[in-house]
Write a protein that binds this DNA or RNA. Sequence first.
DNA 1: GTGGTCTAGACCACC
DNA 2: GTGGTCTAGACCACT
Lengths: 128, 128, 128, 128
Amino acid sequence: MFQLDRQGNKPLYEQIKEKMKALIINGALKPDERLPSVRELAQTLTINPNTIQKAYKELETEGFIYSIRAKGNFVAPLEQKIIRPRRDELKNELEKIVAELIYLHEPQEQLIATIQAIYKEKEEKKDD
Amino acid sequence: MFQLDRQGNKPLYEQIKEKMKALIINGALKPDERLPSVRELAQTLTINPNTIQKAYKELETEGFIYSIRAKGNFVAPLEQKIIRPRRDELKNELEKIVAELIYLHEPQEQLIATIQAIYKEKEEKKDD
Amino acid sequence: MFQLDRQGNKPLYEQIKEKMKALIINGALKPDERLPSVRELAQTLTINPNTIQKAYKELETEGFIYSIRAKGNFVAPLEQKIIRPRRDELKNELEKIVAELIYLHEPQEQLIATIQAIYKEKEEKKDD
Amino acid sequence: MFQLDRQGNKPLYEQIKEKMKALIINGALKPDERLPSVRELAQTLTINPNTIQKAYKELETEGFIYSIRAKGNFVAPLEQKIIRPRRDELKNELEKIVAELIYLHEPQEQLIATIQAIYKEKEEKKDD
DNA sequence: GTGGTCTAGACCACC
DNA sequence: GTGGTCTAGACCACT
């Protein structure tokens, strides 16, 4: 499914969280689709099940997935309650980055072009 | 000068780094302007001088400030050598954030408007 | 493992950096091989762990080693991104040295012979 | 005569030493030629005379210049006693650099070509 | 047991 | 007074 960076300071469970989140965001995992089970994923990644458990737990509290006992973990449909604060968080980070880019004399037109390119790319993937 | 989050997970020295960087990026500290001395800042933040030292040292290796022995730490003027790779790094981070914003249905026009607003705000500050 | 000059002007952590770097460069420590732990080395050198930490941290930012939390520090495989600029740095230093050797009337043939000897020596070690 | 880097950790007297040494090595200052007087240089560099004094003193003990009371400081002709140990020092530094270049896969032919280029360049300057 | 962070307190070279 | 180095001793998160 994906590979982990065993060298690097990031805890494994955070890496799993990020990768899973990326799969959801990119649409590789659709809403209400089932995630690989904890044991299954632990085996394919040769990693401790507890680590997977921790990653899934945090994804749940962040609103990206939901779990049904004895059934598994599933991609959560978007919920307005979740969207708002997360969007604000992201915009905050984005503002910092843009501020530094301006400091480095990145021209406004070029930055906007970059963003339009990202939108275009994601649009095309949606059709898959 | 600013406040620190003493219980959050982020290391104090990283918080100091970020705040100082923000002051530089926003132009609150101009090139070749002197930063508060290690001991001085340590005292006002009621924090250990070594922690400030560490923050300043990293800012130096990242090219944001330079230090003169027995004189102090100063804001570094922009160097071409630094700009390019840093810009690439930032664009990478930005791409991740935009991708997640798209997943959260942030409309393209609105995001671009946000960015234009940031540019405009910085432009105005420049005139100070 | 090696000895330190405790009275010279050079900071201890720099001495440790250099020695460790030499071990890596000479191939005494192979890629992904584990370095002595911070505490361990501190004990054998009768030096403070923080000093070792500092040395290791700088080696990491220079791209010679990488660290895994709760596992240890390891020799980093060569990365293309690092090689280029570092090579330019080294050639600059080399030019200064050669210039002074020319001033001291070192004959060109002899200097080249010296360099060929170094290459030959390293080639042979490679076979180990 | 030359410029000093007032930002950067190197003590001023060391910078002066290095620059002066460079002028001697490059042949800009010929043997037995008089160096600028301490006061004179202090004035043009807007620096404390003591700092110049310290630089000259060290250049003298390293054998690059000699001083005559009430006359001034002069470029020393090459002396065998000085040459030998200095040459060994330089070769030591050179060996470290070459070792690292080999580690970075610098090809032998290219390194030798670089050195030949330096020799050629210095040869041409000699004719000035 | 490991790396990473932090504190308290000390000494040095430089200006 | 300033940055830079070093020690001693402590706590934390992760494996």
